[in-house]
């Protein structure tokens, strides 16, 4: 088995680790780490493929990887800024997985209550702010008024 094939196998293994990490870990920073590992494993595969020819080294995958690295770092930078802003806004460092916490995040998003309320014969006219069951944090209640939707 040639050196390129060996490194391609390593790249495959790293891809597996990266995908496993991306799906199982819920912490945002760990997910960004997993994405970076996945990215570098794909680049390793590309570089290994470039090295398969005995008489020359293929420069095109090298150019692809170089472009890929810069794209990866810019995507990571933006993801991290988003994560920071999300943490500043919600105080959480993981995305809400199930629907319930989705409700806590933005009642307007999946307005469970107003559905039940509408079924029991027409909610109060939308002009007036609707009474909502207490979401987990009272303070968030007042800040999120109707005008919040954009």
């Amino acid at each position: 088995m040639s050196q390129a094939a060996f490194y391609a196998l390593v790249a495959g293994a790293l891809t597996g680790i990266g995908i496993y990490g991306l799906i199982t870990q819920r912490h945002l920073l760990r997910r960004v780490l997993a994405v970076n590992i996945l990215g570098s494993s794909v680049f390793l595969l590309l570089v290994a493929l470039a090295r398969r020819h005995p008489d020359y080294v293929d420069p095109v995958p090298h150019a692809m990887v170089l472009t890929g690295i810069v794209i990866a770092v810019s995507a990571t930078a933006f993801a991290l800024v988003l994560a920071r802003r999300y943490h500043a806004a919600t105080g959480l460092t993981h995305l809400p997985e199930d629907e319930e916490s989705e409700e806590a995040l933005a009642p307007g998003l999946l307005n469970r209550r107003s559905l039940a309320d509408r079924r029991s014969g027409g909610g109060p006219p939308p002009g007036q702010p609707e009474r909502r069951q207490g979401a987990r944090r009272r303070s968030d209640e007042d800040r999120r008024s109707d005008e919040g939707a954009q």
């Binding site: 994405v35 988003l82 806004a89 995040l105």
Partner: peptide, 18 residues
């Protein structure tokens, strides 16, 4: 930049990167 938009954008970024 409210909570729903940020969580949506984050989810979009991660899945799109994958």
């Amino acid at each position: 930049a409210d909570r729903a938009a940020l969580s949506a954008a984050l989810r979009y970024m991660l899945l799109a990167l994958l």
